[in-house]
């Protein structure tokens, strides 16, 4: 597998947003699944072109929040708007190009990699067939996936599937990309590559990115702001440098958990 580092942002000329970046606002968001409350009073303002990272322990509601941001889940109370338009209104996602990179890829398993990438521009008749082919091949080249073009997702490694998923999002030329754990299951070099791509998309194409991640390196390096979610609530929102300087015990515990063999956490949990 060819390793890729996007140190030169001119490598991604085609990955530009076709329109201006959009802002995203979450107001008073509350979500219950039956008896269980998953999100409580979430309020966020994400600026156009910002890379906003949401961190937090597993089960804190990060992925559910992300699904609300693209209208895959409906809030029990509150709302999410993109450029002031409610995301639950189907017309909003016709006007704004937004996409989600799923944690498990969510590639179409009965389609080849090429068809996975070509589906969006073909269905929305954005370009002619020749241009779609060129765009798809260029995106695959940038992510070092040319060899995978005719393969089915089941024939790819976990890391390659993740990259195809990102490539599929990039072909849409989105104004807003939501990433659910984009660097999980990736080796450190590939994780760094993905972080570089997200940062490059902000710097060059001014694409708004919301990233759910446990990856501290990614969060502290490329984020404009970082949020920490605990038990379905936003605990803290700040810049990466302030985040690292925070003396809040829950923040320091999350960023630098100490392995205490004398008093292991699982015993405290009991």
């Amino acid at each position: 597998m060819t390793c890729l580092t996007v140190t030169d942002e001119s490598q991604i000329p085609s990955l530009s947003a076709s329109e201006e970046a959009v802002g995203l606002a979450v107001k008073g968001l509350h979500k219950d699944f039956g008896e269980q409350t998953v999100l409580t009073d979430i309020n966020l303002e994400i600026e156009p072109g910002e890379v906003f990272v949401i961190m937090g322990p597993s089960g804190s509601g990060k992925s559910v929040l992300l699904k609300h941001m693209i209208g895959l889940e409906y809030p029990t109370r509150g709302n999410v708007t993109i450029d002031g338009k409610p995301v639950t209104d189907p017309a909003t996602l016709l006007e704004v190009k937004a996409t989600l990179v799923f944690q498990a890829g969510a590639l179409f398993n009965s389609m080849t990699v090429f068809d996975n990438l070509a589906l969006y521009p073909t269905e929305h008749r954005i370009y002619d067939k020749k241009t779609i082919r060129e765009k798809v091949m260029e995106t695959l080249r940038i992510l070092s996936l040319e060899d995978a073009v005719g393969k089915f997702p089941s024939e790819l490694s976990g890391g390659m599937r993740k990259r195809v998923s990102i490539a599929r999002a990039l072909v849409m030329e989105p104004q807003l990309i939501l990433y659910d754990e984009p660097t999980s299951e990736l080796d450190p070099i590939m994780a760094a590559t993905i972080s570089e791509i997200i940062a490059s998309l902000r710097n060059q194409a001014h694409i708004t990115s919301v990233v759910v991640s446990h990856d501290r390196d990614l969060s502290m390096t490329i984020a404009d702001r970082v949020a920490l979610m605990l038990d379905g609530k936003i605990h803290l929102v700040d810049t990466p440098s302030n985040f690292q300087k925070s003396t809040d015990p829950q923040v320091t515990e999350f960023l630098n958990p100490k392995i205490d063999l004398a008093n292991p956490r699982y015993k405290a949990m009991k």
Binding site: K67, I70, G71, L72, L93, L94, A98, T99, L100, F102, A104, A106, L107, F108, N109, S110, L119, Y120, E123, H124, M172
Partner: peptide, 25 residues
């Protein structure tokens, strides 16, 4: 079986995020 597996493995959600209604295709 095909649609259930697409639903379970989030392929249907992926279609929705691409603004492609699953009912249509």
């Amino acid at each position: 079986a095909e649609l259930a597996s697409m639903q379970v493995y989030q392929e249907v959600d992926a279609l929705r995020t691409m603004n492609i209604p699953p009912e249509r295709i």
